[in-house]
Design a protein around this nucleic acid. Structure first.
Lengths: 347, 347
DNA sequence: ATATGATAATAACACGAGTTAGTAACACGA
DNA sequence: TCGTGTTACTAACTCGTGTTATTATCATAT
């Protein structure tokens, strides 16, 4: 077994056929008729020689790399706070594997770098691309789309007509706030997950306002603060809100990580949750059920998000017309104890 | 700009030289002399035609793919509980980028599947591989190593002579437990991060025992429980320990995520932390400073872990002899409030 | 005038597959 | 016997690059 790698020529020779036939058989080309006996001989020869077709040669000849790119555009801090990445990765690689595709990963700190990821496409290293956390100031993105290169966003970009997969942030936030309203709260604060120029943040903000307005409650800007992905931002924002002369009785924090900081701030003031301050989060991170108290939050289907993004992209790559090019996944409110709706100990 | 892609032939024609010369210049081949003027013309032509060399052709001709594989072997549940993945990914992609390499990602639920990732190497899609969370029952791993394929483990595998990068789990655990001993604790419990057949788990267990023995304290098996990656396992293990007739006064939980469950169990019994039960964790996840109370824990350099794994692998791929093929990164004890060493409010 | 090098290139082959167009062998009906 | 299909293949071209061995040109020394 120390000899050179076998190529399709070797397989052909051993099976007593031409290289063309080997290619037909191993790739299962349907438009060609070959008797079972020949097929068997070729497969057997391939097995015997431990033959694996060379990816580069195959890619060069076919013009397809069978690889999709996954670009993480979040800056370092925000990426580290993204506790769902493992699940999203599983979703996308699982789907890719079903179609015999691979996933190439790239992290991009600065989208406006001259060549953050564009060359991946230009060098034909990938057949399509999923952009996670797209930024509106991303030039390369526009170029790729304009050239007709298959692109799917994971996360929305307002004003751009690009296929995307996201959760229904508006509906999720609305449901969370409606729940608090249903529990009798009239003054409900908001700490966003991120600055409002992020689409997801804006959408959750919208959901918050819709819920208020649906219930005939006035929106009070004094009760709103902008979070910034990390725990500390929630801690600081919450301290500000707690210092208000007329503080809210409940708060919707549009990110569990940010909410985690907010919880610490509330406890620090000696206030009880939910009696003195009810809290609802967003994301349903793994730790939520074990927080103090267990956090009521909006569940986000992370695996599904990755899976659907991969699915949509692979449809585009195959040139099929997908059912929809804009996928909004549903969220689900998970009621635990931080909102005050239950008194049970554990969920 | 709607014409076909430019190839090196087009660049050569436009610059008035041969394709060979183009290749020499764009790749910066040192063994060949070419006047500055010609170089300029070629670069200019490439720019003008928006030329990007085809990755597949390049890979086929050179025999190198300039891609490394990153295989995540943790099973779904454990992967989702791995809050460091984003940082590790950043580390490895950052390093790869410096050498003009890409990173191909694969998740593997079942290492004993006939072809979990072996084909990546066999098809020459990658030049080397980083295995995260290696399992000792992994057949393919042995094959690759035996064939001389460049492999680096991220996480250790006892008894296998394979280059690896890991944190110094023994030293970290030892330091954590020594800290508790220094605070006067005599009965110190242990909840492992995972079952003991995982190397990291075994090492942290060893560190725990070494610290005890160094201080002349007896090891009491009754105070030890095995965690299993997730919060719930910590919650359940802690309940058991709290139910003991003579419970410990402090506990070392060898994973912050598991510790998070343990904290919940302690609070549930109405016990105070650290007064009634001191706690030290391991990992220093982002949420640790905002836990209730802020968790004293052993810091793990996640980015560095990924960076070093990539670095070691790329050395191997280039055929260089790396300084060391076994890298143990140092950890650092971060003292917050759960251990009782401080009384300040926030760290 | 002729040999000697250095300089500045290039022709030609290799890499390992996919794929189109074509053909040999044979069966069958008129 | 001749044509007409059908079956079961294969020859030959293509993809776009890296790289070795070779050559043309010109300056300089003998």
């Amino acid at each position: 077994m120390t000899g050179k790698r076998a190529n399709s020529h070797d397989v052909a020779k051993l099976a007593g056929v031409s290289r063309t036939t080997v290619s037909f058989i191993l790739n299962g080309v349907a438009s060609v008729q070959i008797p079972e006996e020949t097929r068997r001989r070729v497969w057997e020869a391939a097995r015997q020689l431990n033959y694996y077709p060379d990816a580069a040669a195959r890619s060069l000849a076919s013009g397809k790399s069978r690889v999709i790119g996954l670009i993480l555009c979040q800056q370092a801090d925000h990426l580290a706070a993204d506790l769902f990445l493992p699940e999203v990765l599983r979703g996308i690689t699982d789907n890719a594997r079903e179609w015999d595709f691979r996933v190439l990963l790239e992290t991009v700190a600065n989208v406006s770098a001259p060549d953050a990821y564009l060359s991946l496409a230009r060098e034909r290293q990938i057949d399509g691309i999923v952009i996670s956390g797209p930024r509106s100031d991303d030039q390369q993105l526009g170029q790729l789309v304009a050239e007709g290169f298959p692109v799917v966003l994971q996360g929305r970009l307002r004003g751009a007509d690009i296929p995307f997969v996201d959760v229904d942030n508006v509906a999720g936030a609305k449901q969370a706030v409606a729940h608090l309203i249903g529990l009798g709260h009239q003054r409900i604060g908001l700490i966003t997950n991120a600055p409002l120029h992020y689409t997801a943040s804006e959408d959750r903000y919208r959901g918050y306002r819709q819920a208020l307005s649906d219930a005939g409650l006035a929106y009070d800007e004094a009760l709103m603060r902008q979070g910034d992905f990390v725990e500390e931002s929630g801690y600081l924002a919450m301290r500000e809100l707690l210092g208000l002369p007329n503080r809210p009785s409940a708060i919707f924090v549009a990110s569990d990580v940010v909410a985690f900081g907010a919880l610490a701030a509330i406890r620090e003031q000696g206030l009880r949750i939910p009696q003195d301050m009810a809290v609802v989060g967003f994301d349903d991170i793994r730790l939520a059920p074990y927080m103090h108290p267990p956090l009521t939050t909006v569940h986000l289907p992370a695996y599904e998000l990755g899976w659907q993004a991969g699915d949509l992209l692979l449809h585009l790559i195959r040139g099929e017309t997908p059912m929809r090019t804009e996928v909004l996944l549903p969220t689900e409110l998970v009621v635990r104890q931080s909102c005050g709706a239950r008194t049970r100990q554990r969920d």
